[in-house]
Simulated assay, not measured.
Amino acid sequence: MSPPDADRESLGRRLDAVERALAEDEPVDRTDEIAELESRIAELEAAVEALRGYVGSVRSVNGDVERRADRALRKAEALERTVAAGEQEREASETAADPSDDEDEKPLLERLRP
Protein backbone atom coordinates (compact mmCIF):
# COMPACT_ATOMS: atom_id res chain seq x y z
CA MET A 1 0.00 0.00 0.00
CA SER A 2 1.43 3.35 -0.95
CA PRO A 3 1.58 6.22 1.54
CA PRO A 4 -1.29 8.17 -0.07
CA ASP A 5 -3.55 5.10 0.35
CA ALA A 6 -2.54 4.86 4.00
CA ASP A 7 -3.39 8.54 4.45
CA ARG A 8 -6.79 7.96 2.82
CA GLU A 9 -7.44 5.01 5.09
CA SER A 10 -6.50 7.01 8.17
CA LEU A 11 -8.64 9.91 7.00
CA GLY A 12 -11.52 7.54 6.35
CA ARG A 13 -11.30 6.08 9.86
CA ARG A 14 -11.24 9.53 11.36
CA LEU A 15 -14.23 10.64 9.31
CA ASP A 16 -16.16 7.54 10.39
CA ALA A 17 -15.36 8.31 14.04
CA VAL A 18 -16.56 11.90 13.65
CA GLU A 19 -19.77 10.74 11.97
CA ARG A 20 -20.43 8.25 14.78
CA ALA A 21 -19.81 10.95 17.38
CA LEU A 22 -22.23 13.32 15.69
CA ALA A 23 -24.95 10.78 15.07
CA GLU A 24 -27.88 11.19 17.40
CA ASP A 25 -28.80 7.53 17.42
CA GLU A 26 -25.47 6.48 18.99
CA PRO A 27 -24.87 7.95 22.46
CA VAL A 28 -21.26 8.70 23.22
CA ASP A 29 -20.00 7.02 26.36
CA ARG A 30 -16.75 8.62 27.44
CA THR A 31 -16.76 7.57 31.09
CA ASP A 32 -14.08 4.92 30.54
CA GLU A 33 -11.85 7.38 28.73
CA ILE A 34 -12.40 10.03 31.42
CA ALA A 35 -11.62 7.54 34.19
CA GLU A 36 -8.44 6.49 32.38
CA LEU A 37 -7.37 10.11 31.89
CA GLU A 38 -8.08 10.93 35.54
CA SER A 39 -5.98 7.95 36.58
CA ARG A 40 -3.10 9.08 34.35
CA ILE A 41 -3.36 12.62 35.72
CA ALA A 42 -3.18 11.28 39.29
CA GLU A 43 -0.09 9.23 38.40
CA LEU A 44 1.55 12.25 36.78
CA GLU A 45 0.80 14.43 39.80
CA ALA A 46 2.36 11.80 42.08
CA ALA A 47 5.42 11.64 39.85
CA VAL A 48 5.75 15.43 39.89
CA GLU A 49 5.57 15.47 43.69
CA ALA A 50 8.23 12.75 43.88
CA LEU A 51 10.48 14.76 41.57
CA ARG A 52 9.94 17.88 43.64
CA GLY A 53 10.98 15.97 46.75
CA TYR A 54 14.05 14.63 44.99
CA VAL A 55 15.06 18.07 43.74
CA GLY A 56 14.59 19.46 47.24
CA SER A 57 16.89 16.77 48.62
CA VAL A 58 19.51 17.48 45.98
CA ARG A 59 19.38 21.20 46.77
CA SER A 60 19.79 20.44 50.46
CA VAL A 61 22.79 18.19 49.82
CA ASN A 62 24.29 20.79 47.49
CA GLY A 63 23.92 23.41 50.22
CA ASP A 64 25.62 21.12 52.76
CA VAL A 65 28.47 20.36 50.36
CA GLU A 66 28.91 24.04 49.59
CA ARG A 67 29.08 24.93 53.29
CA ARG A 68 31.64 22.18 53.93
CA ALA A 69 33.74 23.30 50.97
CA ASP A 70 33.67 26.91 52.18
CA ARG A 71 34.73 25.79 55.65
CA ALA A 72 37.59 23.68 54.24
CA LEU A 73 38.74 26.57 52.06
CA ARG A 74 38.79 28.95 55.04
CA LYS A 75 40.83 26.46 57.07
CA ALA A 76 43.29 25.92 54.21
CA GLU A 77 43.72 29.68 53.74
CA ALA A 78 44.26 30.15 57.49
CA LEU A 79 46.85 27.38 57.49
CA GLU A 80 48.53 28.93 54.49
CA ARG A 81 48.76 32.30 56.29
CA THR A 82 50.14 30.62 59.41
CA VAL A 83 52.80 28.74 57.44
CA ALA A 84 53.77 31.90 55.53
CA ALA A 85 54.06 33.88 58.77
CA GLY A 86 56.19 31.12 60.30
CA GLU A 87 58.50 31.10 57.29
CA GLN A 88 58.89 34.88 57.45
CA GLU A 89 59.75 34.68 61.17
CA ARG A 90 62.27 31.91 60.51
CA GLU A 91 63.90 33.87 57.68
CA ALA A 92 64.04 37.00 59.82
CA SER A 93 65.63 35.12 62.70
CA GLU A 94 68.17 33.50 60.38
CA THR A 95 69.26 36.84 58.92
CA ALA A 96 69.48 38.42 62.36
CA ALA A 97 71.53 35.49 63.65
CA ASP A 98 75.25 35.40 64.31
CA PRO A 99 77.21 37.60 61.85
CA SER A 100 80.04 35.06 61.89
CA ASP A 101 77.83 32.92 59.68
CA ASP A 102 79.32 34.80 56.73
CA GLU A 103 82.55 32.98 57.47
CA ASP A 104 80.81 29.68 56.78
CA GLU A 105 80.04 30.79 53.25
CA LYS A 106 83.78 31.00 52.39
CA PRO A 107 85.35 27.91 50.91
CA LEU A 108 86.93 25.59 53.45
CA LEU A 109 90.44 26.14 52.15
CA GLU A 110 90.21 29.91 52.66
CA ARG A 111 88.88 29.47 56.16
CA LEU A 112 91.79 27.21 57.09
CA ARG A 113 94.49 29.63 55.89
CA PRO A 114 95.96 31.98 58.53
Rank of each mutant, 00 (worst) to 15 (best):
A92E: 07
A21N: 15
E91M: 04
E105Y: 01
E45D: 09
L44K: 12
R90H: 06
Y54S: 11
V18L: 12
S60T: 13
A46Q: 09
R71H: 09
L51A: 08
L15Q: 09
S2D: 08
D5S: 07
A46E: 12
P107A: 03
R8F: 07
S93T: 01
A47M: 06
E87Y: 02
N62V: 11
T95A: 02
D102R: 03
A17F: 05
A47D: 06
D64A: 14
R71S: 11
R52N: 14
E38H: 12
T82I: 05
V58C: 13
L15K: 13
E24P: 13
E24S: 14
R67N: 10
D7P: 00
S57L: 11
R68W: 06
D29F: 15
Y54T: 11
R90A: 11
A17G: 08
G53A: 13
P27M: 07
R111F: 00
E94D: 00
V61E: 10
V83Y: 02
G63L: 09
N62W: 10
E24Q: 13
R81W: 07
A97S: 06
S2P: 02
R67P: 04
D102P: 01
T31C: 07
R14L: 15
S60V: 06
R67S: 11
R20D: 14
A42P: 14
E91C: 01
E66H: 05
M1C: 01
R14I: 15
L11A: 08
E87W: 01
L109M: 02
E38N: 14
E66F: 04
L109A: 05
P27L: 10
L11G: 08
G12A: 14
D101K: 02
L44V: 07
P27G: 10
R30L: 13
E87C: 03
A6K: 08
S100C: 00
R81Q: 12
R67L: 09
V18N: 10
A85W: 00
R52G: 12
D25K: 15
D98R: 00
E26A: 09
E87H: 05
D25Y: 03
V18G: 07
P27C: 06
L73K: 09
R8N: 07
G53T: 11
A92H: 05
S39C: 13
N62C: 10
A46K: 08
D25R: 15
L51P: 01
L22H: 03
E49I: 06
A97T: 01
S100E: 03
L79R: 01
E49H: 09
A69N: 06
T82G: 03
L73D: 13
A50D: 11
A92K: 09
R8V: 04
V65R: 06
P114D: 03
L22W: 02
R40N: 15
I41A: 14
L109Q: 03
E89N: 05
D101P: 00
Q88V: 06
L79F: 00
L44M: 10
R67V: 10
E49W: 11
R14C: 15
L109E: 05
K106G: 00
A6I: 07
